[in-house]
Simulated scan of single mutants.
Amino acid sequence: MAPAARDAPVISVTDAGIRFKRNRSSRRSFKDLFAGRNRRSRPGEFWPLRHVSFDVHAGEAIGVVGRNGQGKSTLLKLVAQVVYPDEGAVAVREGVAPLIEITGGFVNDLSVRDNVYLTAGLHGMTRREIDQRFDEIIEFAEIGDFVDTPYKHLSSGMKVRIAFAVISRLEEPIILVDEVLAVGDKAFREKCYTRIEELLAGGRTLFFVSHSERDLLRFCTRGLYLDKGSLVLDAPIREVVDRYNADYGVV
């Protein structure tokens, strides 16, 4: 893995918090809407993340650890700027390749070919760039026989393969990964992991959410341990995994 450069951080999260509604039927009065705009939780609201702060420098490989429902995926969405904090700040100073909810944005009635051009284009690749990489994407995904098949007819595993093949060909400096390969077969997962290692060797920055201790130790050098929406430990990945295991028994 490339050593982390100690220039300005590429990701800065400063006292960040995000507030969600627990129950859509919760009602607020007219007075609340116009006069009650404070940061305290109201009935029917909760904070999946609050008072979270850390920096990530270029070339670092960060593993995010915690039980289900502790804010890991929400944190990735904040970094991806899919959602925005209700308090504090999240600054991302480089482009992001988001391997989260990986098949989102693909259109069922379009062919695989059309979806490749649509998705890659939405992520900033030019038509010429897609033309140059199209065969490479299809070969990596191992779905050459289905390139003109409607996307909706692919199996869930095939959908993951084509989505990973597209997103992992983006040249963005920051890679966000959130358990996206759980559907893939073992051989293809290893192929994807090799691709992630190639990207890391090229100096990319990795932000990786996983429940797999083996994968966290394979890719990451530093860990963030989230519990009840708070960052309880920011330390070398081995220390973070050991602390989590001591608290809960298994990543």
Results as ranks from 00 to 15, higher is better:
35 A>F: 15
64 V>P: 02
43 P>V: 14
63 G>R: 07
59 G>Q: 03
63 G>N: 01
61 A>E: 02
105 G>V: 10
91 A>P: 00
56 V>R: 08
52 V>F: 08
53 S>N: 05
35 A>T: 11
20 F>K: 09
39 R>E: 10
107 V>K: 12
98 P>A: 15
73 S>E: 03
48 P>G: 06
67 R>C: 03
10 V>E: 00
87 E>R: 13
14 T>L: 09
104 G>N: 13
98 P>G: 10
93 R>I: 06
93 R>N: 12
42 R>T: 04
32 D>T: 12
108 N>M: 07
47 W>K: 11
84 Y>M: 05
40 R>P: 00
62 I>H: 00
16 A>K: 02
51 H>I: 00
24 R>F: 14
34 F>K: 01
106 F>W: 10
33 L>W: 13
24 R>V: 15
68 N>I: 11
33 L>I: 13
37 R>S: 06
29 S>T: 15
58 A>R: 12
20 F>S: 08
32 D>H: 13
65 V>C: 05
62 I>S: 00
14 T>Y: 07
41 S>T: 06
83 V>Y: 04
106 F>N: 02
17 G>H: 11
99 L>W: 12
101 E>D: 15
47 W>L: 13
44 G>I: 05
25 S>Y: 13
54 F>H: 05
109 D>T: 14
49 L>G: 03
105 G>K: 12
22 R>C: 09
46 F>T: 06
93 R>Q: 07
80 A>P: 02
90 V>C: 09
28 R>W: 14
79 V>T: 02
13 V>S: 03
27 R>H: 09
34 F>H: 04
31 K>Q: 10
108 N>Y: 05
58 A>C: 06
25 S>K: 15
98 P>R: 09
56 V>H: 01
105 G>L: 11
106 F>V: 03
70 Q>I: 00
43 P>G: 05
62 I>V: 10
68 N>K: 09
92 V>W: 10
99 L>G: 01
66 G>L: 08
26 S>M: 14
37 R>K: 07
59 G>E: 04
45 E>P: 03
17 G>R: 08
60 E>P: 01
111 S>P: 03
40 R>G: 01
37 R>L: 12
55 D>H: 08
108 N>K: 12
45 E>A: 06
71 G>L: 06
30 F>Y: 08
60 E>L: 05
89 A>E: 14
38 N>Y: 04
109 D>Q: 12
95 G>W: 07
104 G>V: 09
9 P>E: 02
109 D>E: 11
35 A>W: 13
70 Q>L: 00
55 D>Y: 02
93 R>S: 13
89 A>S: 15
89 A>M: 09
96 V>E: 11
85 P>G: 05
25 S>D: 11
84 Y>K: 07
35 A>H: 06
110 L>S: 01
78 L>P: 00
60 E>C: 03
108 N>T: 02
103 T>E: 15
37 R>T: 07
36 G>Y: 10
50 R>K: 14
43 P>R: 15
82 V>M: 09
58 A>K: 11
67 R>L: 15
46 F>E: 12
103 T>H: 08
106 F>P: 02
84 Y>E: 02
15 D>G: 14
54 F>P: 04
35 A>R: 14
96 V>R: 04
